[in-house]
């Protein structure tokens, strides 16, 4: 077979496989976030995290994609983020914090496996995410 066709085929199959694997994560998270969003827990969460989120110029809801991202992966965070009405600047801030600091359990295991100080890396990523959040939230209002 033509190598180019073969490459496209392999890539396509890999994408479908990855998506199927992701569905196992995304669907339950999506369901859970929809339920939380309409349950009495949500106003409580919003109020509890409002002061913390205000540091990053974010509304209280932003805590949902951020926490989801910490424990699952970016796809989970996106599934959660797509359910609230964030502005482009807010989404950019959420994306940056989430991108720097996400899937901590999985990537903790991964860094152990390649022989890195996993605990220190987790602390480093959380700190970096806070710094990034502070910078981007200030910039976002100017640039967007």
């Amino acid at each position: 077979m033509d190598p180019v066709v073969q490459i496209i085929k392999t890539g396509f199959i890999k994408a479908i496989k990855t998506t199927l694997m992701l569905m196992k994560v995304v669907l339950p998270i999506y369901a859970l976030v929809v339920i939380i969003k309409y349950s009495p827990v949500m106003p409580f969460l919003e109020r509890a995290f409002e002061p913390a989120m205000r540091i990053f110029n974010l509304p209280g809801d932003a805590v949902v994609p951020l926490i989801t991202g910490l424990f699952t992966d970016e796809y989970g965070a996106i599934a959660a983020a797509s359910q609230f009405d964030f502005t482009a600047a807010e989404l950019t801030t959420v994306a940056m914090i989430g991108l720097v600091c996400h899937s901590l359990p999985v990537e903790y295991a991964l860094s152990r496996k390649i022989g890195l100080p996993a605990g220190k890396i987790v602390i480093y990523r959380i700190l970096a995410a806070v710094v990034v959040g502070l910078i981007i939230s200030r910039l976002g209002g100017v640039l967007l």
Binding site: E74, I78, A81, S82, F86, A88, A89, L91, T92, V94, A95, M96, G98, L99, V100, V132, I136, L139, G140, L143, L144
Partner: peptide, 15 residues
């Protein structure tokens, strides 16, 4: 993240 509406340039160059 671009598909949901975040600013692609900021999140890639920034990181």
């Amino acid at each position: 993240w671009g598909t949901v509406g975040a600013n692609v340039i900021i999140i890639s160059a920034g990181r």
